[in-house]
Nucleic acid binder design. Sequence first.
DNA 1: TGTACATCAGTGAACGCGCGTTCACTGATGTAC
DNA 2: TGTACATCAGTGAACGCGCGTTCACTGATGTAC
Lengths: 252, 252
Amino acid sequence: MDSAPTDDQPAPRTARDRARAALMRDLLDTARRQLAVDGAASLSLRAVARELGMASSAVYRYVASRDELLTALIIETYERIAEVAEAALDEARADDLPHGHRWLAVGRAVRGWAHQHPNEWALVYGTPVAGYHAPADTIGPASRVAAVLARVAVDALAAGAAGMPDGATPLPDDLVEPSVVRLFETAGAEPGAFDDPLVVRSMTMWVGLVGLVNFELFGHLANSLVDDDTFFDAALAVAAEAIGLQVDLDLG
Amino acid sequence: MDSAPTDDQPAPRTARDRARAALMRDLLDTARRQLAVDGAASLSLRAVARELGMASSAVYRYVASRDELLTALIIETYERIAEVAEAALDEARADDLPHGHRWLAVGRAVRGWAHQHPNEWALVYGTPVAGYHAPADTIGPASRVAAVLARVAVDALAAGAAGMPDGATPLPDDLVEPSVVRLFETAGAEPGAFDDPLVVRSMTMWVGLVGLVNFELFGHLANSLVDDDTFFDAALAVAAEAIGLQVDLDLG
DNA sequence: TGTACATCAGTGAACGCGCGTTCACTGATGTAC
DNA sequence: TGTACATCAGTGAACGCGCGTTCACTGATGTAC
């Protein structure tokens, strides 16, 4: 929780180490604050250094390049979103909400975070920053978010609240990589419980959620809706039908 | 087709007018080419001027600011996507394809264009350019694209190929603005045929399509899929179930 | 048809700005004996 | 515990770059008589 963000550093022994770790945190926090205000495209090392009151060259003691800073921010952002989603699911489970409402709770939490942090959301789920190419380190944190949705689907299926919907369009087999099926098994699925069609259906829920949040955030629903919040819930309910999961919107 | 892009100019009378119109086209084409290569964030008036072989100040005879150039490009881009979608629908109708396949055809056409022009796609459906705020002129062209999807839904409903699916989650009324319902009526719907729940369901198809294309384009499906094209079709088929529209994927 | 004037496309220099990154350096902190 | 040396955080100047926008100007094109 309060350890190094990008990778595990040796535990701080000396005063120097502690100062370094503290400044690294400051640096990331400052960068994130600027990102939140101006967006990823205009995030600049010089501006961060300025706000920290240090020479622009000094940040290079902490970060090898602007790209590396972006990577660190991206990883942290995935982790924050994952935490929000996990917390929502944990609470929904603790309250023993119906499975449809667990999905709704996770979706709302993710959306809420996105609305509070639009530029940080866009950093990970919007247009990639020009010239930046994500290293492999971002894959893990990214799939941690997706794993929450997998857990919702797995739970619902196990409880009999979800499954192939009646009259479901037959979908091909051999569509997704084994790693994705494994994600569902890690989330608690019985081996064999999720075949490709069901995985694809679950994925459409996740893709739909992200797409919907982007659609809202990027302004494509402006002037179309009487009530954005209710529309969001309704759209989530429709998305959930992909795996036959019913959302009772009257529960609020 | 070869008229002015932003608004209707008086027909070119003099040589000067013709030269002006031609250079305006060159300017937009050049800007678009640079946009296609570098992305919207790094589109610069100076670079465009350079490629056109003119002084950077000269472009201000054609465009009042960088923002105005972006607006012109955005409008044109919506229109190109709309043309592609309309052409796909027209062809599908001419071939008398089943309604599920018309949806698939439109979706594939839109996706194909997006993959060929990722930066142009991102200009309109990705993260908005920092500091840019879209004027009202972009609303019309944007809804021209959405109108194609409305037409698909309207046709399918009229033909009895779509409607409220069995066991559909009840959705609230009074969710969408009258202008949206009117969009469906303009697309040929009988008055009253589309109530709010059905409109919302149709909208999720459109939002899902855009979201799915973004998800792919922004790299979030990397290493998850054995076959991106087939997954895309499958996801479209799932989206279509929102209005009970069946897509037979075996038809290819 | 020819002339006087108005329009306007395009120039080139300038303003003022910000950026990422490198490099030789100083001075404080840490380590080994 | 004290000293000699190594490590490393932070400095400040510099390199080389690109950007949007303004402004006074020249010279070609168009218009009215």
